[in-house]
Structures are given as structure tokens and as C-alpha cells.
């Protein structure tokens, strides 16, 4: 398994990461070598094995829908890098 620069660029876009040319070059080599190592898993026959997401016997967890004290709006907003009129401000989307 070898990742081309073009593939690295595609993944970086999906991951919303702007990479430098040097990073693209390096990640292409490093990710290829990690994926080669991961190919080891292909040695195992797993057609009849169920995937294991986590070990707990938990499926859906419900709670009563009751109003409880939570964080204050002003507190939460205080960590935002850019605010306008008590709301998060972001660059244009459309």
C-alpha cells in the first residue's frame, strides 16, 4: 500500500487540514509505511467474525428529560475566538 501525494491531498481536504508541501511528502511516506504494517491484518480470516466496537453490554442509554442546571451561556461563549451580538461569528459559508 502506497499513498500518492494526490491521495494525501484528498484526505487532507476531508480532514480539513491545510498541509505544506513538505508535510504532504512526509505523510505520503509515513502513512504508506504505517498502512503497510496494518496490512498484516489481512493474514487473518475474519469473514465469520463480528466487529467489536466496544466491550460493554450497553445499547441505548436513556435518561428522564428533566431540566437541570447547566453551564451559563455567557460562560460558554467566553471561550469563542470571535463573537458578534452573543453569537459565534464565522466567515461566509455560501
Amino acid at each position: 500500500m502506497s499513498l500518492s501525494i494526490k491521495e494525501v491531498e484528498h484526505i487532507a481536504l476531508l480532514a480539513r487540514l491545510k498541509l505544506t508541501d513538505d508535510e504532504k511528502e512526509r505523510f505520503s511516506q509515513q502513512l504508506s509505511s504505517i498502512l503497510n504494517y496494518a496490512d498484516k491484518l489481512k493474514e487473518l480470516a475474519t469473514d465469520d467474525v463480528l466487529p467489536l466496537e466496544h466491550i460493554l453490554p450497553i445499547y441505548n442509554v436513556f435518561r428522564d428529560d428533566k431540566i437541570q442546571p447547566g453551564s451559563l451561556r455567557e460562560d460558554i461563549l467566553s471561550n469563542a475566538p470571535v463573537l458578534q451580538e452573543g453569537q459565534y461569528k464565522v466567515p461566509r459559508i455560501m
Partner: peptide, 29 residues
């Protein structure tokens, strides 16, 4: 960054079964 890239790849269309799902099956073993 390296780990986000690897994880994004393992979950991406066309590679999900070969990497992520395969890993979950091996996890059960």
C-alpha cells in the same frame, strides 16, 4: 495531524471495510 490523516483514510469511502471494519473484527479475536 498524522493520526487524523490516518484515521480519516481508514474511514474514507472505499477503505472503510479493508481497514476500520477489519480492525474491529481483529479486535474481537
Amino acid at each position: 495531524k498524522r493520526r487524523i490523516m490516518l484515521g480519516t483514510y481508514a474511514l474514507s469511502s472505499g477503505y472503510y471495510d479493508a481497514y476500520y471494519l477489519k480492525a474491529l473484527k481483529v479486535r474481537r479475536l
